[in-house]
Design a protein around this nucleic acid. Structure first.
Lengths: 147, 147
DNA sequence: GCAGGGTTCATGCAACTGCATCCATATCGA
DNA sequence: TCGATATGGATGCAGTTGCATGAACCCTGC
């Protein structure tokens, strides 16, 4: 196979570094505001968007690109805080649904302004007109099927 | 402060997801080939590029966007494998240099082909002409001062 | 109906990370 | 010079992740 061009390597390096820097900054803003980590928001948001506020763990896994065991434990923590509930799947006792609770919805709504402001500060404010759209398009291609 | 536009949010979401997907895939390729994780490569490569193959931990920290304590322990592991050596700083006994060893250089050279192929497969092959350059440019702006 | 195999989710254990703090050393100011 | 403060790096502990495996359940073919 042909090796990557210099441009590709540069893009890769900056992708890793930009994500680390920006995500770290957003995560830090959330923490400073006394809110839970981003991964909690991601789960809650996925559930809010889903019909009936519930999803199969497997779907969450795919949506959030989490490993099965990581999701399992993340859900443990969310459940312990009363933000989601695991409800049995009628007809298949292996499976289950994860359902957001009222408390979970409330937390997500409380987190959103903090999150949005952090994203604006660390991403929005640094991108010119059209750059955001262009970035999203290219990254979408990079993601290929996975989205 | 004005909230982020939809385009900014989309860019943010894809940035996180793309980095997770691509980085996970590259990391997995390295592991499959029996090589150490990417963080090891990053340190070794930073040292190779530095004059005399040595850097102050603080500089590595900035270059790799690692926390001080994480770098300290990463260096523990690299040192335990004989890939780097901590050498005292003449004139300030608090400080030190991290110096790559021959063994470290050899490992980096062995890792590179595997790494390069993974980057090509998961990044290069998915970007059209000019997209890599465009992506690198936008992400560079996103990084702002930090690089 | 039941043995074998696949699917879904959980968990024991080891490695890694985050956080607070500590230790040793250097620097600054009176 | 000496005490207060700052800096560079390490470390104890708790929380999280990765990996391998396990437990419960479903399904298929015989």
């Amino acid at each position: 196979m042909q090796g990557p061009t210099d441009d590709v390597v540069a893009a890769w390096v900056r992708l890793v570094r930009a994500q680390r820097a920006v995500m770290g900054a957003v995560e830090a803003d959330l923490k400073r505001a006394g809110e839970p980590p981003l991964s909690w928001y991601d789960v809650l948001w996925s559930l809010v968007q889903a019909p009936d506020g519930r999803l199969a763990p497997r779907d969450l896994e795919g949506a959030l690109l989490l490993e099965q065991y990581n999701l399992s434990r993340l859900l443990d923590r969310l459940e312990a805080d009363g933000l989601v509930a695991r409800v049995p799947h009628p007809g298949d006792r292996r499976r289950q649904f994860v359902e957001i609770t009222e408390r979970g919805r409330a937390l997500r709504e409380r987190m959103w302004p903090v999150y949005a402001e952090a994203v604006q500060r660390h991403v929005g404010a640094r991108l010119g007109d059209g750059e955001a759209r262009c970035l999203a398009a290219i990254l979408g291609g990079l993601l290929g099927g996975r989205f």
